[in-house]
Structures are given as structure tokens and as C-alpha cells.
Design a protein around this nucleic acid. Sequence first.
DNA 1: ATCCTACGATGGACTTTGTCTAAGTCAAGC
DNA 2: GCTTGACTTAGACAAAGTCCATCGTAGGAT
Lengths: 138, 138
Amino acid sequence: MSDLLERLRGRGWRMTAQRRVVAEVLDGDHVHLTADEVHARAVARLPEISRATVYNTLGEMVMLGEVLEVSTDRRAKRYDPNAHRPHHHLVCARCGTIRDVRPTGDPLADLPDAERFGFTVSDVEVTYRGTCPDCASA
Amino acid sequence: MSDLLERLRGRGWRMTAQRRVVAEVLDGDHVHLTADEVHARAVARLPEISRATVYNTLGEMVMLGEVLEVSTDRRAKRYDPNAHRPHHHLVCARCGTIRDVRPTGDPLADLPDAERFGFTVSDVEVTYRGTCPDCASA
DNA sequence: ATCCTACGATGGACTTTGTCTAAGTCAAGC
DNA sequence: GCTTGACTTAGACAAAGTCCATCGTAGGAT
């Protein structure tokens, strides 16, 4: 059931109940959870799991490239298990809903050398902002 | 000297010593300050200015569209007085340095209707990440 | 010029998000 | 089934930001 778990085990991860639960929560169909939301759902399955462990585990998954950190607002980081497929985000300015989107074109190619100031550019994050249909009609 | 102040006054802003100081700090040549940095510089000119006032004032400037809120890392929002010229940001993953850049192309146009999910898309924020020359050589 | 009053400022408590640490626990190799 | 070092825990701590009751003052009215 859990691709994520398989991949993590394959990387020599020590498998603990806590890590399993965090991976399972992320692997559900609810993407873009905040760390605290992950913790809340993890607690439902494993009541004694601590916040620190959830933070640590999420951080490790990000390090391993299995999960993406998304920062669409300054409230909290969100975690996106969709790390294998490149995509960007569309955020409602009112309610905070996030959708994954795949724009055409490659924004990395749109940054000319003259605008790179000697940086080694490795990544680009695009966030579209707007109003979702629900908020627009309210 | 201060375009920003002129524009704000023109919008019927009540002019107070505190607001003047915040506008002047932003209007200097240091761009991309955090709220706390703005506060620190404001205190240097007006020792009794409070943090809440700096936050309120920055928030109002953002509302009025005179200043841009940039969130390149999770640590703190940064404020960019360059709101009149569209631009994006290039951030060093190591030291956090931020440069303004102007990519070619329009990312908004790159988002097809089919990927908009009924949203009214009004804005796009692009953040390039990489390593700056200083950090690369260190 | 002075007065009024609503708008703005204050500071300190509070909240949210995240990090750190010291001590205890347990997965996995032997 | 031991051992060991990686993992987990609870709670203290920190940073960034918000809220609120109260006080002060900019700027229009007189």
C-alpha cells in the first residue's frame, strides 16, 4: 500500500512505529498538510507520538527527497508527498486551499544568465495566487 | 526624497511620526528587510516605536500595494518596497541572500485555463533557489 | 489658535510554529 | 537474548507575529 514506506526502507531507514505512522498519514489522499496536521492525524493512530518526532521525521523525508516542503503562506510549512512529479501550486488568498498545477513552459529556462548573478540555480518554486470558486461566490 | 511617503499621503493616510519612520526605513537602499529589521532601524530613529506599530504599518502598506511581502524562507516575511516593478526573487539556500531578478516570459500566461480549477488567478510569485558565488567558493 | 474625536500607537500578554536537550526506549545485527 | 547506537519523548525554549485595553495625537471643526 505504501510506496513511500517501501522507498524509505530501501534507503536503510530504521523502521519504527512512529515513522510508519507519519509515512502513512502523508501517503493518504490528503496532501499539503501542515506539520501540526500531520501530528494530529498521527496521534489518532499512535497516541503517544510526540511533536518533535513528527518534525524530525518530516525533515528527514524532505532531506531524502521523498516529500516536498511547500511554503505558500507564512503560517506554516506544508508537506507534499508528490515529490516525484514536478508541479507548482495555486493558492486561494482567502481560504488557503492549495491545488497542484502543472504550467506549460519551464521557468528555469526563463531566467537568463545575465540575471543569475553568478548563482548556481538549482530549483524554482512557483506559487499562483487568486480566489477559489467557493470564496468568489461567498 | 520619499516617493513612498508622497504616495501614501495622497491616499489619505494620516501621517504620524511612526509611519514616516517606517516609510523612510523602507525607502532606503536596503531592500528585503524582515519586520524585525525594520523595527530595529526604526527604533534607531524613534526609540519608543513599538513592534506592533511596525507590524501594523507594514501590513497597511502591503494592503495599499505600496510594498510587497516576500516569503522566501520560513523564518520571517520580508518587505520589498519595489512594488511598482514586477520582479521575482533569487535566493541563496545557504546564506539567504536575496536578489531581485526579472525573468523573460510571463508565468501567468503559462497556466492554462484547464489548470486553473475555476480560480481567479491574480498573481504569481516565483522564487529561484540556488547557491550564491560566495557560498559556492566557501 | 484651540478643541474634539476618531484614528493610530503602545506594550505586554498571548499564540503559533518550530527547535533543542537530556534521559529513556527499542530495532536490528550479532 | 544482548548490545548499542539510532530513535523517541516531554517539556523548556525561541522566534515571529497577533491581540487588546488603554493612551496619545493628527488634523478637521470652530
